[in-house]
Computed example of a mutant assay.
Amino acid sequence: MDRFVDDGSLEDSFESFLSDDDADPRGRVARRSDVSSGFTFSEVGVIPASSSEVECCHFSADGKTLATGGHDRNAVLWCTEPLAVKSTLEEHSQWITDVRFSPSMSRLATSSADKTVRVWDVDNPGYSLRTFTGHSTTVMSLDFHPAKEDLLCSCDSNSEIRYWSFKNGCCVGVSRGGATQMRFQPRLGRMLAAAGDTLVSIIDVETACCTLKLLGHKNLVNSLCWDSSGEYLASVSDDSVRVWAVGSSSKGECLYELPCSGNKFQTCVFHPTYPSLLVIGCYETLELWNMSENKTMTLHAHDKLVSSLAASSSTGMVASASHDKCVKLWK
């Protein structure tokens, strides 16, 4: 595998990294026509986001607001242009594990080690609109359904998944399978991907039944992310990253695998402009992986672990959150 390191002269490296014959031989995930030789990826902003470790970040649908959260127990909303604090959400009593914007409404959801899920009005975030209780341990992750505005899900460290109705303010279903992270399929929301132990479960949202189990990771799956089409899913353990075909006509085939050859992997996100490119967060570095060419490029990004990544298709930006207390913006 070709590997490039940030040596101060990245222009030629990037051109080689996204070469003219960059095409998926199976016609999946991306084609060279989507990738320009003018590709760049550089730091465009730094946010001193917290007095403690930052664990999570997420862009609003329009990319104009970034939410962050972590060990200081606060979620913070940031304007991305110009970079400035919009508001601070202070009701959780323990560290915040995940933050997610609704794709269709002006709402933000936060999960915490205090066993609760809270939902906020982004335009009037003085207090939470809803507080959901019922989990018996740390709530590790949560997400809004992309089409059903009333529905959101959360999972805890005991692998319990809870389905919540915002309108009714109550739990409307319980299943199992997610212990570290869970994400709804974009746009349609027919599937819920849930990471637990060394596997990823694909759950039918209508029936709450597991329809696929993605097996192959040897270590705990730390995080996962969908591509924008909802046809492909990436999953990350500290020793490997895998990309799966999980769309309506797929059976969970592993299309690509990147073994760890240095820094342990922690998180990932599909690049918002180049769908054949996966951005992987590691200890101090970002790994750019051109899946169809099987090439990687390593960039120094933070002084400690990169704990979370987010991408905005509206602005083309990627955000990286870190235990070094900062969040950086890349484009």
Rank of each mutant, 00 (worst) to 15 (best):
F270Q: 04
V279M: 03
K325Y: 12
S292D: 07
S308Q: 01
T296N: 02
S307P: 07
V318C: 12
F265W: 00
V306K: 01
L288S: 10
S307E: 02
A321K: 13
S313Q: 09
S261I: 11
S313L: 11
A310T: 07
K264G: 12
C282V: 10
W289T: 02
A319C: 13
T267D: 07
Y274P: 03
Q266M: 11
L309H: 00
K304M: 11
L286F: 06
M317I: 02
P275H: 06
G316M: 14
P272A: 09
H323G: 09
L305M: 14
A310G: 14
L278H: 03
K304D: 14
V327S: 08
V279G: 02
L277I: 01
L278C: 05
V279R: 03
M291P: 03
K295S: 11
G262T: 04
L299N: 09
D324Q: 10
S312Y: 03
L278Q: 02
S292L: 07
G281L: 10
A311M: 09
G316T: 15
W289Y: 08
S276Q: 07
T315S: 15
K325L: 12
P272D: 09
L288G: 01
E284R: 15
E293T: 08
Q266V: 12
C326Y: 09
L286V: 08
H323C: 15
K328C: 12
T267S: 10
N290C: 08
M291W: 06
S314Q: 09
N263H: 14
P272K: 12
A310R: 00
M291V: 04
H323S: 15
W289I: 03
E287G: 05
L286D: 03
T267E: 08
F265H: 03
M291E: 04
A319R: 07
S322I: 11
G316F: 14
H271Y: 11
N263P: 10
L277G: 05
S276K: 03
P275N: 13
K295W: 09
H302S: 03
M297P: 07
A311H: 00
